[in-house]
């Protein structure tokens, strides 16, 4: 095998990694996978909702990223660029699966059920301020339980970090519709988390003592 063997630790920042990728160094490819594949897979899974299809999105994303690495201009971070490719691939797969995205499954006006139901404050609990595995499970389940027309909007806006106009363009919605859907999605997630987040700590302690 030609060329020196470069250890993966060489690529400890994305700039170095990009140089390695442009040299088509196999270790750089491995490093890119180690660094970005877990989040690409998690995001793809949330978008398409199926592990096999998410793996397909993951593979296509990295194949496309490797092929297009010479045209990546570095304007955004390498991760941001890869995540955008993954989002496009995920949405493309959803469209192909059903001819169109299932965006019509929700009304674009505020429904009575969207009014805040829970008014219980959430205690400031340092243990719950970080996204530990339990809270992560709660929010992942809540997102998975949203209708697709709300799930995709909250995914693109609040997880992928697209702005209102970018989200509208991706989904073929008006910016106003994106805002209404985002609000409804967030309010539903809030209600879903309320039972967990508002639970007083004493109950946890009592349960733990049992």
């Amino acid at each position: 095998m030609p060329g020196p063997t470069i250890t993966i630790s060489v690529y400890d920042d994305d700039t170095q990694l990009l140089v390695g990728l442009r040299r088509h160094d196999p270790d750089a490819c491995t490093c890119m996978v180690k660094r970005f594949a877990p989040l690409v897979f998690a995001r793809a899974l949330r978008l398409v909702g199926d592990a096999d299809e998410a793996e397909g999105v993951l593979q296509t994303t990295f194949i496309k990223a490797c092929n297009a690495i010479d045209s990546f201009d570095g304007a955004s971070g390498l991760g941001t660029w890869i995540y955008r490719i993954a989002t496009n691939e995920g949405l493309m797969l959803l469209r192909a699966r059903r001819q169109s995205l299932a965006l019509d499954d929700v009304a674009e006006t505020l429904q009575p059920g969207d009014l805040p139901d829970s008014r219980v404050a959430w205690p400031e609990d340092p243990l719950r301020s970080t996204l530990d595995s339990e809270l992560r499970g709660q929010i992942e389940a809540a997102i998975a339980g949203l209708p697709e027309g709300l799930r995709l909007v909250v995914m693109l806006r609040d997880v992928e970090g697209l702005n209102t106009e970018e989200t509208a363009a991706q989904l073929g919605l008006s910016p106003g519709a994106v805002k209404v859907r985002l609000h409804r999605a967030r309010m539903r997630l809030r209600e879903s988390l309320a039972g967990y987040m508002a639970r007083p700590e004493e109950i946890d302690d009592a349960e733990a003592a049992r």
């Binding site: 989040l39 970080t130 996204l131 992942e140 997102i143 997880v159």
Partner: peptide
């Protein structure tokens, strides 16, 4: 919490 999913 939703934002935190993006880089957890």
């Amino acid at each position: 919490i939703v934002h935190a999913l993006s880089d957890t």
